[in-house]
Amino acid sequence: MGPSNRSSWHGFILRGFSEHPKLEVTLSGVVAIFYLITLVGNTAIILASLLDSRLHTPMYFFLRNLSFLDLCFTTSIVPQMLVNLWGPDKTISYEGCVVQLYVYMWLGSVECLLLAVMSYDRFTAICKPLHYSVTMRPPICLGMVAVVWGGSLANAVVLCTLTLRLPRCGNNLLDHFLCELPAMVKIACVDTTTVEMSVFALGIVIVLTPLTLILISYGHIARAVLRMRSKTGQRKAMNTCGSHLTVVSIFYGTIIYMYLQPGHSVSKDQGKFLTLFYTIITPSLNPLIYTLRNKDMKNALKKLLTAAYHGPKERKRSWES
């Protein structure tokens, strides 16, 4: 760490929405509500899919991973954000900012890749059902998830390390509500072209490559569904894939609009609200999207609620039925 960055050891100031004090009060309430929904919804999905043996399939294994990811993703952001929104103190320690930057980049990359793996699972189940049990064996599913988390960590380490090495000449005012990579790059006092090109190149790999694979998978899925003679089979396939496709559309739509546009096409406040949407709102919507159109998950959640309401004996009887 060079001399020009020493002032950053004292921490950073997160400007966030401080220019709009009344908006901060409203946002703190909204963020707290959606965070609570995220915690309850995703925890319920994890417990229900673990306790119901009928949901011990690759699809729900990946869904548990997504729910766990959403819990970690929001928890890495929301507590610090609420502290900054509730009071006049808008600071975050240097160490806290570094941890948030690495975790935020890591988990964001994981979600991009995990959604692609989930689309491959649906492609195999619908287009190659006879090979599904072999192709999606538990060791293979574990391997896929390990590659997703490991590859995303490598991406985060490279990008965040490059960013943190940029000299800031004492600048510690971040025009955002979290320690996000573009906001960190903006306060550098040197030419950042190399870092920006690296971010863009890895963004193509982490964002557009999985999205392309998802679109190819769903192209094959759509063709297979249209060939089905059974209307029930068509409906079941559409319900299962529709949930995942909705999550993909919301997540990737926001990410692409935010990061893969010309430099100044998104205003500062608009960028903050878009970040707020895909980091706070989307994780709270995922449990709702996956349960509304999924009969098996609805039944598992009903059992979970029944087991929680009644005593241990009723709980045991509920999961055995």
Rank of each mutant, 00 (worst) to 15 (best):
L181G: 04
C141R: 04
G143Q: 02
L181I: 12
R168V: 14
V147Y: 11
T193I: 15
L164H: 03
V190I: 15
P167W: 08
W149N: 02
K186Q: 15
R168S: 00
K186S: 12
G170C: 04
A188W: 06
L142D: 12
G150I: 14
A156K: 00
A156R: 00
C141G: 10
K186H: 09
N155R: 08
V185I: 08
A183T: 03
R168W: 07
V148I: 15
C189S: 14
V185E: 08
G170W: 05
T163C: 14
L181E: 14
C160D: 05
T161Q: 08
T194K: 06
G170L: 10
L153S: 07
C189E: 06
N172P: 02
C179F: 00
C141F: 05
M144H: 11
F177T: 11
N155F: 09
M144L: 15
L166Q: 07
C189R: 09
L159S: 04
V148E: 06
R165T: 09
L178T: 05
G150A: 10
L164Q: 06
N155G: 01
G150D: 13
T194N: 12
G151P: 04
P182Q: 03
A183I: 00
N155L: 09
P167L: 02
E180A: 12
T161A: 14
T193K: 15
L153D: 07
V190R: 03
G143A: 01
T161V: 01
D175Q: 06
G151F: 03
T194C: 08
A156C: 09
L178P: 02
N172I: 13
K186Y: 06
V157G: 04
V158I: 12
A183V: 00
V158Q: 14
S152H: 14
L162C: 10
V157A: 12
L162W: 13
T192Q: 01
T192V: 08
L164R: 05
T192C: 05
R165S: 11
C169T: 09
N172S: 12
L159K: 07
G150S: 11
L159A: 11
P182T: 01
C179V: 03
S152Y: 13
P182S: 02
G170H: 04
A188I: 13
D175K: 02
V147H: 08
C160S: 12
L178A: 14
L142Q: 05
T193G: 15
M184V: 01
M144W: 14
V157S: 15
G151K: 12
N171V: 10
S152K: 07
L173A: 07
L173C: 10
L173I: 10
L181F: 03
C179T: 04
T193E: 13
A146M: 10
V185Y: 03
H176W: 00
A154K: 09
L166P: 01
C160F: 03
